[in-house]
Write a protein that binds this DNA or RNA. Structure first.
Length: 488
RNA sequence: GGCCCUAUCGUCUAAUGGUUAGGACCUAUGAUUCUCAAUCAUGUAAUACGGGUUCGAUUCCCGUUGGGGCUACCA
């Protein structure tokens, strides 16, 4: 059975690139009837951010990516750990790591290192000057265990380094890139246990993935060059390494690694702006993957059905907001008004203080006005402002370019009379009645529809007049039209 | 600097040892139209470069160049 995991560090909001990894891990597990594990990698005590774990979980939940095992919200939105092989938060697993580090030390696969930061900096500087490969020079590699223990007892600060073999080549087959190989002598003696007693990523990830029976490691390409260290650790422990798949990275428009400087990188930013999870998932999944035909719209369920690692591209992909916008518009157009009202609920509440479901039916129509025009939820809610509050506008705006003020006033007055007699204010009925009138009297549509639309919306650009009139209802529509007549 | 990964329109990508190199986004033009959208039609636009292998290479190999990653007691 396939078991994948997503293992974020709680150092801030969920990065869109990491989101892509989580999505891929989730899809891969789900499509094979496997399990998806969520683990928290909080071994860097200095970069911990309060509330980051909650934020990460909230974002994943928004996207419908929830783990079968590991850390998640329960029904009361409390963070819990589920599954049998926990804990799933690394800071709660310190004794486990210590035990495996000791095993490595006792088997001569790891050693204590007492080098100061200053010495390490010096070594690096010299290597750089000599244009050599940089890395630890092995200064403490041959200190005997007895001697090391004495130094520790004497109070010296130490880290533990893994003992990389000095010859040979580490080869592995990446599911995306094929065979990759590294010369062992160029691989560093990585620190695996820090002086604060916490493991580094490299040790913790290997131990946890093994203990948690992870079969496929799907992660970003930035990990490719540390994979030989991980493979070597599996070897030292006598464990079977899992399969690796290193996904291409997301890029800025200038093709550098996607970074905060050039735009929003946190998924939360996109949630706040009113992007739909469907659109973000579809967009991000299609960065570096496609089904091989010309379909572009894929739900999470369809992705689970059709995604395959073999078709994933090798090169990084520019994170192109214009395409995201397009996806969001597509999903907005497709969505039922009812569902859209649900999604916009909080935004309506914040902006117009409309909250309870008494207004649901009305909101349904309001939302329909803009769903083909807006790009995001926030924009949609903003754009229907005129329904709740008719803004100020100049009388000149009422006059269509091919018309004049007198004619406009006359037309609106007649329109007002006609509407006053109507009981059915549906847009179909309005269109029919007004259409007949225009035809009968041979009046150009623009001569009436333009001023009517402006009178109802107060805006240069807006939805059509019939639609707006239907949403506003008879009383409010007439009030606005008569107000416009008074202006002229 | 060292090591590793990578290269098709501006962007995301499809395809094949032989094609008019396809689609989507963006963009331009036209149609529609009361405005903005939406919609429909049409157009512009790509195999980084140099060597091989081959009857033939965008595809396979090598090199160059470009881009990216790693090179921490960060992940």
């Amino acid at each position: 059975m396939i078991r994948t995991r997503f293992a974020p560090s709680p150092t801030g909001f969920l990065h869109i690139g990491n989101f892509k990894m989580a999505l891929t891990d989730f899809i891969l597990a789900k499509q094979n009837g496997g399990e998806f594990v969520l683990r928290i990698e909080d071994t860097d005590r200095e970069r911990l951010v309060d509330g980051a774990m909650e934020s990460l979980l909230r974002t994943l939940k928004w996207a419908g990516i929830e783990p079968d095992e590991g850390v998640k919200f329960d029904l009361n939105n409390k963070i819990v750990q589920i599954g049998g092989k926990g804990p799933y938060i690394q800071s709660e697993r310190l004794s486990i790591y210590r035990q495996f580090v000791n095993e490595l030390i006792n088997n001569n696969h790891a050693y204590y290192c007492f080098c100061s930061k200053e010495r390490l900096d010096e070594v690096r500087k010299i290597q750089e000057l000599n244009k050599q490969a940089s890395g630890y020079d092995g200064h403490c590699r041959n200190i005997s265990l007895e001697e090391a223990k004495k130094m520790i007892e004497a109070g010296e600060s130490a880290v533990v380094r893994m003992k990389m073999p000095k010859e040979g080549v580490t080869k592995f087959t990446d599911l995306i890139r094929g065979e990759v190989s590294f010369e062992n002598k160029l691989v560093d003696d990585q620190v695996i246990l820090k002086s604060d007693g916490f493991p580094t990523y490299h040790l913790a990830v290997v131990v946890d993935d093994h203990l948690m029976k992870i079969t496929h490691i799907v992660r970003g390409e930035e990990w490719l060059s540390s994979t030989p260290k991980h493979i070597e650790l599996y070897k030292m422990f006598g464990w079977q390494p899992p399969l690796f798949a290193h996904l291409p990275l997301l890029l800025n428009p200038d093709r550098s690694k996607l970074s905060k400087r050039q735009g929003d990188v946190a998924v939360e930013d996109y949630i706040k702006k009113g992007y739909l999870p469907e659109a973000v998932i579809n967009f991000v999944a299609f960065l570096g993957w496609n089904p091989g035909d010309e379909r572009e719209i894929f739900s999470l369920e369809e992705l689970v059905k059709e995604f395959s690692l073999e078709k994933v591209n090798k090169a990084g992909a520019v994170f192109n907001l214009e395409k995201l916008d397009w996806y969001n518009r597509e999903y907005l157009k497709k969505m039922s008004n009812e569902e859209l009202v649900k999604r916009c609920g909080v935004l309506f509440e914040e902006k117009y203080h409309i909250s309870d479901n008494k207004c649901q039916i009305a909101l349904d129509k309001v939302v329909g006005l803009e769903k083909e025009r807006a790009t995001t939820l926030v924009e949609l809610v903003e754009n229907v402002k005129f329904v709740f509050e008719l803004g100020e506008y100049e009388a000149e705006l009422l006059v269509w370019k091919k018309s004049d003020k007198a004619k406009t006033k006359e037309n609106l007055a007649k329109l007002s009379q006609i509407l006053a007699k109507l009981s059915d204010f549906s847009k179909e009925k309005l269109e029919l009645v007004i259409g007949e009138w225009l035809k009968a009297e041979n009046i150009g549509t623009g001569d009436v529809l333009w001023p009517m639309r402006v009178a109802l919306s107060g805006q240069k650009n807006s939805p059509g007049p019939y639609e707006i009139a239907e949403v506003l209802g008879k009383d409010e529509s007439l009030r606005r039209i008569n107000q416009a007549i008074a202006k002229l």
